[in-house]
Design a protein around this nucleic acid. Structure first.
Length: 250
DNA sequence: ATATGGCCCTGGTTGC
DNA sequence: TGCAACCAGGGCCATA
């Protein structure tokens, strides 16, 4: 359910609350999911790190980490990162900033105790979400496989679908083509563009593709504007309401 | 290479 | 009313 606008909104909210904070202690649940990196390794990597910045790539929330405080512009800050904590919310995941004494929600899988006294928590009943830790000297910084729908040019957008026989809706959902688009915004943009979801992606005309891209950008930006006004609904302990909000504007 | 389908997982909804 | 079956749905993997 969380797609690009929701994830962006959450990333901004978390960034505003924890940027510059130090991770004092990390606790993880002992389930197999939602861990892409074993919990012990995540805890070891996270403890002592400073959160330089939190931002969105596709549907992923990326926390840039280092062993010292950030300085300068966002670009410099991100460039100075030595590790990343990557959060995917899946269907039901929530990333919350709370006080340490806030009641523990059921299905809490991660608790990062911060130097400021706050806590960053990951809660996910269905465990479709993913938590990953990356050392940047061992691996590339996280990059989504697909293109960002908000910034892709018309030519590149058209190229994505050339020769493809699968339905345009399925193509929009494919994260290695376009990243950040899920069920809701795929449906909504197709509807706005007046296009049948089951039409083969490769059979759309250039004019149709341009209409589709425009519609997609419009719905995403609209949702982003709405989301921006209700950041606290996502990130502060109340949590759930915000997602509901955005889904309901459609 | 591209496309399809099954699986993961729990909570809410539906149906008896 | 109460309980069980059923469905949602993004990403990942095996298979066609």
């Amino acid at each position: 359910m969380p797609e690009l606008p929701e994830v962006e909104t959450i990333a901004r909210g978390v960034d505003a609350r924890v940027r510059g904070d130090r991770i004092v202690e990390a606790w993880f649940s002992s389930h197999r999911e939602p861990f892409k990196t074993p919990p012990r390794r995540q805890a070891k990597g996270l403890e002592g790190k400073v959160i330089l910045a939190v931002h969105r790539t596709g549907k992923h929330i990326v926390c840039e980490l280092a062993t010292r405080r950030p300085g300068g512009s966002l670009e410099e800050t991100v460039a100075g990162a030595s590790a990343q904590w990557i959060v995917h919310l899946g269907m039901t995941g929530r990333l919350l900033v709370t006080t340490p004494d806030a009641p523990l929600a059921p299905h809490t899988h991660a608790r990062l105790r911060l130097g400021s006294g706050r806590e960053l928590r990951f809660v996910d009943p269905r465990r479709f979400g993913r938590l990953e830790f990356r050392e940047l000297h061992r691996a590339e910084g996280f990059v989504g496989a697909g293109a960002e729908p908000l910034t892709i040019e018309d030519d590149d957008f058209a190229t994505l679908f050339r020769g493809r026989r699968l339905a345009i809706k399925a193509a929009l959902l494919n994260q290695s083509l376009l990243t950040g688009v899920g069920n809701i915004y795929a449906d909504e943009s197709l509807f706005r563009a007046g296009m049948r979801p089951r039409k083969a992606a490769g059979r759309l005309t250039r004019a149709e593709l341009e209409r589709l891209r425009t519609a997609l950008v419009e719905v995403l930006e609209h949702a982003l504007r709405l989301g921006g006004t209700s950041v606290s609904d996502y990130v502060d302990a109340a949590g759930v309401r915000g997602l509901f909000h955005l889904a309901h504007w459609l």
